[in-house]
């Protein structure tokens, strides 16, 4: 993406995010939120993170490539186990990066 397009994108996301934050304080101050919005918001984060993780591991250059000889999926698996046990973001990143170096060396 060109730098110009990236600037437009970031400003657009910034404006949208600000409008979300200002929405009920300033724009629609007298209205209440529909129940479905609460229900939907609970699922957005897990769905986004799962889609991006699966894509980072198994989609390369716009094509699906499930390659079990590649080091990244295995490093991700080690990281997921550590995340499950420790619930620590830092420990997950540290072990995942260490596992990636190890598997790149071994495979």
């Amino acid at each position: 993406m060109s730098t110009g397009a990236l600037i437009v994108l970031l400003v657009a996301v910034g404006v949208i995010t600000f409008l979300y934050r200002y929405a009920m304080i300033g724009l629609f101050a007298s209205r209440s939120l529909p129940a479905w919005l609460h229900a939907l918001c609970r699922h957005i984060a897990p769905a986004s993170f799962a889609a991006l993780t699966a894509s980072a591991l198994f989609v390369h250059g716009g094509t699906l490539s499930i390659d079990l000889g590649a080091p990244k999926p295995w490093a991700a698996l080690v990281a997921a186990l550590v995340a499950w046990r420790t619930r620590s973001v830092l420990a997950t990143i540290a072990t995942g990066m260490a596992a990636l170096s190890l598997f790149k060396f071994l495979f």
């Binding site: 984060a45 993170f49 993780t53 980072a56 591991l57 490093a75 995340a83 997950t92 995942g96 990066m97």
Partner: peptide
Amino acid sequence: FAVPLTFIALLTLL
């Protein structure tokens, strides 16, 4: 690769 690793950590919490 640290970015998807972060998503994995956040996912397990969610």
